[in-house]
């Protein structure tokens, strides 16, 4: 099963990359055959690396959630860039590295959350604790309220992104 998924994904990427090679049809026959051979080879070589044992990402509802997630993500990203532009011009910074515990269980959701944190307002994920799934976040302009209690509140950093990551990948 994992071999089949890997080979299919490789073949689809190949087809998108070689589109328009022939004027009459979208692909000519030699391209299709060579791509199929290469996709089978890639699937046989990489089947244990690409997808693992867990097949829950095949559910189309998760892909739909991912597409919906792109809209709030893009707005947060635009806000982040205006914020960073303001800090570049004024030079007003107050940085710190804080530890947050987003309560996520698997690697894919943690990856999505870490990438979202990197691209959204004023924060940058630095390190991850693999045992407890805690993230260390560099924060460019810290909120003094967060510093008071030790299990840090993650809502000022990445307000509802852990819920989105849980919805997509858990």
């Amino acid at each position: 099963m994992s071999f089949l998924i890997t080979a299919t994904v490789a073949y689809l990427i190949y087809l998108v990359l070689t589109i328009g090679g022939s004027a009459v049809l979208l692909w000519n026959r030699a391209e299709l055959v060579i791509g199929a051979v290469c996709a089978v080879a890639a699937g046989a070589l990489l089947k244990n690396r690409f997808i693992g044992k867990n097949l829950r990402m095949l559910n189309p509802a998760r892909w739909f959630a991912f597409l919906v997630y792109l809209f709030p993500f893009f707005f947060a990203m635009a806000k982040a860039n205006i914020d960073v532009a303001y800090r570049v011009i004024t030079g007003r910074i107050n940085p710190a590295i804080v530890k947050i515990n987003p309560n996520l269980k698997n690697d894919l959701s943690l990856t999505i959350l870490a990438n979202s944190i990197t691209l959204t307002p004023g924060t940058l994920s630095v390190d991850v604790d693999e045992k407890t799934n805690e993230l260390y976040v560099h924060w460019i302009n810290i909120d003094p309220k967060v510093l008071k209690d030790m299990p840090r509140d993650y809502h000022p950093i990445c307000d509802s992104f852990p819920d989105w990551a849980r919805r997509i990948a858990e």
Binding site: V84, T118, L119, L124, I140
Partner: peptide
């Protein structure tokens, strides 16, 4: 403009990606 490596990474990654 920024003083250390992490804040430079903020500016470089976010702004050039956007």
């Amino acid at each position: 403009r920024f003083p250390d490596m992490y804040t430079r990474l903020h500016a470089a990654t976010k702004c050039t990606t956007f």
